[in-house]
Simulated assay, not measured.
Amino acid sequence: MSKIALITGASSGIGRALARYHASLGGDVIITARRGEALDALKSELEAAHKVTVTVIPLDLGAAGGAAKLYEAVKATGIRVDYLINNAGFGGHGAFLDRDLTDDLNMIRLNVEALVSLCHLFGKDMVAAGGGKILNVSSTAAHMPGPLQATYFATKAYVSSFSQALAEELKGQGVTVTALEPGYVVTEFAAVADLEGTKLIAQKGATAEAAAKVGYDAMIAGKLTVINDKPLAFMLGWIMPFMPHRMRLNMVRKMQEK
Results as ranks from 00 to 15, higher is better:
241 P>N: 05
33 A>N: 14
160 S>H: 08
219 M>D: 10
10 A>M: 14
143 H>A: 14
91 G>N: 02
144 M>Y: 06
78 G>W: 02
173 Q>K: 15
173 Q>S: 14
206 A>L: 10
68 A>Q: 15
126 M>D: 07
55 T>E: 13
200 L>N: 10
49 A>T: 04
64 A>K: 14
67 A>D: 09
116 V>H: 11
133 K>V: 02
20 R>K: 15
119 C>Q: 09
84 L>P: 06
15 G>P: 14
151 T>Q: 05
95 A>W: 02
238 W>Y: 09
173 Q>C: 03
170 L>P: 09
123 G>H: 02
100 D>A: 08
4 I>Y: 04
18 L>V: 14
190 A>L: 02
34 R>W: 13
122 F>A: 08
105 L>N: 01
141 A>N: 08
4 I>M: 08
216 Y>L: 13
181 E>D: 08
185 V>C: 02
136 N>Q: 07
99 R>F: 01
143 H>M: 12
226 V>M: 06
12 S>Q: 15
179 A>I: 04
24 S>G: 11
71 Y>P: 05
98 D>C: 00
37 E>V: 14
151 T>V: 15
112 V>M: 12
152 Y>Q: 08
141 A>C: 07
231 P>L: 05
1 M>D: 06
178 T>N: 07
4 I>R: 14
230 K>N: 00
10 A>L: 13
203 Q>D: 09
230 K>D: 01
159 V>Y: 06
45 E>D: 13
239 I>M: 06
69 K>Q: 15
137 V>R: 02
134 I>V: 14
227 I>L: 01
240 M>D: 04
29 V>C: 14
9 G>D: 12
219 M>Y: 08
17 A>C: 12
61 L>C: 11
26 G>M: 12
73 A>R: 10
254 K>D: 06
82 D>L: 01
220 I>D: 07
63 A>H: 08
202 A>D: 14
34 R>P: 12
226 V>R: 09
152 Y>R: 08
28 D>I: 12
111 N>P: 05
3 K>G: 11
